[in-house]
Design a protein around this nucleic acid. Structure first.
Length: 926
RNA sequence: GGGCGGUUAGCUCAGCUGGUUAGAGCGCCUGCCUUACAAGCAGGAGGUCGCAGGUUCGAGUCCUGCACUGCCCACCA
């Protein structure tokens, strides 16, 4: 059994090898289970990355957390489906290809729609898989056989079906409204795609001459160029300053057009001059006012936000240039009467940063109120849980203030709206399939707009499971169990999935046997897209700045992986992912976790070295179980570990405690806690203590007998194997590598990923062993400590004296004297029956006094200083303890265990104080 | 204009429902190449938990106010 591993862990080759293996062996593929299946099911939909995407830290955090949860469930016997795919990402992809065309000196309009779309498909085929390839490097245990793309035929059909149904139900309508328009992308965008930014601007005051009155009315505006499209002036009916002007007209400066003065609540007396210009085609509020008063809508700009023919002599100018000219002309003609600094909340396009133009245009909308109502209920009723809790309220607030959703985009790449317009009668036909001709017999043409990308991604939880057909997959896997995602897309995506899911899956029933086994029996509503949502943090750079390409502070996960390994990078993200707080990604942590991987590696080398030398025949333990076992079944811990010694009992107990904690932490998404617990166990307990303690037993050539060595070695391998399973969800690669090596290429199952996750076994808890071990550790550390203080040569063995405060402690120490001698470099141990605390080179605790016998003079001054500090600390403890114990309130109100502990502690502190004082005296400290 | 989070060691962060003398990693100091590991081992220094009040027998933890900082939402000229 050759186990010659390199001395230092080299993640690169190992990781790609296992990543490929998992895919080739189709380990994570989940065939549709037949009726009668009663295993618990866990379903997770991968938030589909954009086909144009490149892996960033956010993805990696997201995927690490998902993979941890997924592997954990799979190992606990859940039928676990993790569904991957990519999003066609309308705007992003179209832009990408347009850029490519630009380099060839081409434009999409020149080549026409059909050819352009074909070109985008070509691009997708060539480059669209990049992000998924990167995912593979992370070890994501998704079911690749079910990979989808949002523009696949079946998914596109489902999109059309949804559109037609909503239209037929009156929940989709076509209308002329003011929408957010990005002049750069030349398309409408939704409210969510507009980012508001406070920027310094101006509030200009313009006076309009009142016709036939010989006076002016002054309005305030932040956008003077839109005055060219004014169709009224509004004042508030209650505003007495303007009562005499009601019904009059003003002459619109620069345009010489007469427009009415109207009364409308749009004008608020407190703001500015109390009078406001009304531009229905360029401002949403004015638009509404315009409808109320039946005002004309004069659109003075084109789709590029250049002034058009309605802008008179400003036609052809860019909007900002037009603003300058308009202001200049108004000033010159005496109409501009004021200019104040004013902060404006400027709306910009989420993707390109261009200032968004409110634009009047014909668009398709989803009537959101009825959908939002049920989406709200689903969360309010607890049918969907949102973790952390605070996002629940944020979600509900948003649902309460939601507006209709503009879903049409003036793009070429995406799901084209299934509506056809008649060329002769103008009638619109919405249909699943293209109609041959209009009802009137006229020729029809499909409308050119495509759907918002989020429209299709909002359907994924059911369309990926075969909807609109009623499939077995839906009965089994819908509702999906969990969604893990970033806060950023809570509204874009999560909210829409809930709305669509509740609407289209209404009446759906999950297979009852599966539902019950999965633990959802108490949930009534099976239409929800997922039972739980976990919102994770944002990954920032080490300076807490949001990572962005423009700032140039983007940390490339592949680069980090290259240098430290995927496992170490995953571990970093897990260990830093305390729910609710953002992660400032710090490479020094990753470096530390690479060291952790190396530690595990070397512990494995140590194990194999002994395995080979002792010649132990390693058998498959029954703790390795096949999928199909019930979660948390017994035997999933360490079955073949037979404690012989204190350290055996201790490590077994510790392992079970850690397993309990890790399972507990994962169940509530406390990834950092799970990671830290495994880390501390593996390094701080298993490596630092257990391995050191069992070395003499393993080393049978030195006189120990071989069967004892074999027993010790067997325990070691059992423990190690279980610890690997415990760690596997977080560090899948190194655990797989070592686990496979343990079985020497002949494991009973193909991967550690298919074994059982360790569960705590109550019978293996051993409180006595933990207590005794703590004392032994304390004793060893004390001696090491004293050696350092006395400046004993590192190699010199020293004699010590011990005063054990109880017989049981003395017995325990005697049983483990070999360990003490070896780990503290002790030559001989003498037990005495008197306090040793006043000796130089002694230390005492509640359980024992220990004295290192060594000639070398100590630094009296330094020692005094230290003792005084110690004394102060002890006295502080005594004072505060006495205060509490002297307090009747405390005694009556605090739980008895707390009081009890405090009493005990006070006794110990009193002893300690006594000892410290006598030591101070001994040294004649001043 | 609303809402949410953060402020704990030099740095990056833990600290769950209030309960012994507040922890980790990195960095720093001292000493060790001890036959798994120098990406290691042993030992050590370093904190009035942002500020001010309050509740409580007891507050890093709960409440109020303030300061600084970050984020999200918002069609008022």
């Amino acid at each position: 059994m050759p186990h010659d591993l390199p001395k230092a862990y080299e993640p690169g080759a190992i990781e790609t090898r296992w990543a490929d293996y998992w895919i080739q062996e189709k380990l994570f593929s989940v065939p549709t289970p037949p009726p009668g299946e009663n295993r618990p099911v866990f379903t997770l939909l991968l938030p589909p990355p954009n086909v144009t995407g490149r892996l960033h830290m956010g993805h990696m955090l997201n995927q690490t957390q998902m993979d941890i949860i997924v592997r954990w469930h799979r190992m606990r016997g859940f039928l676990t489906l993790w569904l991957p795919g990519t999003d066609h990402a309308g705007i992003a992809t179209q832009m990408m290809v347009e850029k490519q065309l630009a380099r060839e000196g081409k434009k999409r309009h020149d080549m026409g729609r059909e050819k352009f779309v074909e070109r985008v498909w070509e691009w997708k085929r060539e480059y669209g898989g990049a992000i998924l390839d990167q995912m593979k490097r992370l070890g994501a245990s998704v079911d690749w056989s079910r990979e989808y793309f949002t523009m696949d035929d079946n998914l596109s059909h489902a999109v059309h079906e949804v559109f037609v149904r909503l239209y037929e139900e009156g929940l989709i309508y076509l209308g002329d409204y003011i929408v957010n328009w990005c002049p750069w992308h030349e398309t409408a965008i939704s409210d969510l795609e507009v980012k508001h930014q406070d920027v310094p601007g101006h509030l200009w005051e313009i006076r309009y001459p009142v016709v036939g009155a010989g006076e002016f009315i002054t309005v305030a505006t932040t956008r003077p160029e839109t005055m060219l499209g004014d169709t009224a002036i509004a004042v508030n009916a209650k505003d007495e300053r303007y009562t005499h002007l009601h019904g009059k007209k003003v002459l619109l400066p620069l345009m010489n057009r007469e427009i009415p003065i109207i009364t409308d609540e749009l004008a608020q007396p407190e703001f500015g001059t109390g009078a406001v210009k009304v531009t229905p085609a360029h401002d949403p509020n004015d638009f509404q006012a315009g409808l109320r008063h039946n005002l004309p809508q004069i659109n003075v700009m084109d789709e590029h936000a250049h002034m058009n023919q309605h802008a008179g002599r400003y036609a052809g100018l860019d909007r900002f240039e037009a603003r300058k000219r308009v202001l200049h002309d108004l000033r010159e003609q005496g109409f501009l009467v004021g200019e104040k600094d004013y902060t404006i909340a400027l709306g910009t396009c989420d993707r390109c940063g261009t200032v968004v133009e409110p634009r009047l245009s014909k668009q398709w909308f989803v009537k959101i109120a009825p959908l939002a109502e049920r989406a709200k209920e689903a969360v309010e009723s607890g049918e969907i849980t949102i973790v952390p809790d605070n996002y629940r309220q944020i979600y509900l607030n948003w649902m309460n203030n939601i507006h209709d959703w503009c879903i049409s985009r003036q793009l070429w790449w995406g799901h084209r709206i299934p509506a056809w317009k008649c060329e002769s009668c103008g009638e619109l036909t919405v249909a699943r399939e293209a109609p041959a001709k209009c009802k009137c017999g006229g020729k029809v043409e499909q409308v050119s707009d495509v759907l918002d990308t989020w429209f299709s991604s909002g359907l994924l939880p059911f369309t990926t499971l075969g909807w609109p057909e009623k499939t077995r997959d839906q009965a089994v896997f819908y509702p999906t169990t969990l969604l893990i995602t970033a806060y950023e897309i809570l509204f874009f995506w999560v909210a829409r999935m809930i709305m669509f899911g509740c609407h289209f899956m209404q009446g759906h029933v999950q297979d009852p046997a599966i539902k019950k086994a999965s633990g959802w029996a108490d949930k009534k509503n099976d239409s929800v897209p997922f039972r739980e949502v976990y919102i994770h943090a944002l990954v920032r750079d080490a300076e807490r700045q949001k990572m962005s390409k423009t700032k140039g502070n983007v940390v490339d996960p592949l680069d980090v992986i290259q240098r430290f390994g995927t496992d170490a990078t995953r571990f970093t993200l897990a260990a830093m992912a305390a729910p609710g707080t953002d992660i400032a990604f710090n490479e020094s942590r990753t470096e530390g976790y690479r060291a952790f991987a190396n530690k595990i590696w070397n512990a494995a080398r140590f194990m194999f070295m002994n395995l080979d030398r002792i010649g132990l025949v390693w058998e498959q333990p029954p703790s390795v179980v096949r999928p199909g076992q019930s979660p948390g079944s017994p035997g999933a811990g360490i079955a073949h570990f037979h404690p012989q010694t204190l350290e055996d009992r201790w490590i077994l107990s510790r392992f079970n405690r850690v397993a309990a904690d890790v399972n507990d932490a994962l169940a509530t998404y406390r990834f950092h806690e799970a990671a830290n617990r495994v880390y501390d166990f593996f390094w701080g307990e298993f490596c630092d203590w257990y391995l050191e303690l069992i070395k003499p037993r393993l080393n049978f050539e030195d006189g120990a007998d071989k069967s004892a060595a074999q027993a010790a070695c067997s325990n070691l391998v059992n423990l190690f194997e279980a610890a690997l399973r415990l760690l596997h969800p977080i560090m899948p690669f190194i655990t797989e590598e070592i686990w496979q090596a343990i079985y020497d290429g002949k494991p009973a199952v193909k991967s550690i990923a298919l074994t059982a996750y360790p569960q705590a076994d109550q019978k293996q808890f051993d409180l006595a062993a933990e207590t005794e071990m703590a004392i032994l550790q304390d004793l060893i550390v004390s001696v090491r400590n004293l050696r350092a203080e006395l400046k004993v040569e590192p190699k010199a063995k020293v004699p010590i004296e011990i005063f054990a405060h109880e017989l049981g402690i003395r017995t325990m120490i005697e049983h483990n004297r070999g360990a003490l001698e070896r780990l503290a470099n002790v030559e001989s141990i003498r037990f005495v029956e008197e306090a040793l605390s006043n000796r130089v080179g002694a230390r005492s605790t509640a359980r024992f006094d220990v004295h290192v016998i060594y000639e070398r003079k100590i630094d009296v001054a330094a020692e005094c200083e230290k003792l005084k500090k110690e004394l102060e600390k002890v006295e502080r403890g005594i004072t505060s303890g006495q205060r509490q114990l002297g307090n009747q309130q405390f005694l009556s109100k605090a739980p008895p265990s707390v009081v009890e502990n405090l009493r005990k502690q006070q006794q110990e502190l009193a002893v300690l104080k006594e000892k410290t004082l006598s030591k101070l005296k001994e040294l004649s400290c001043s």
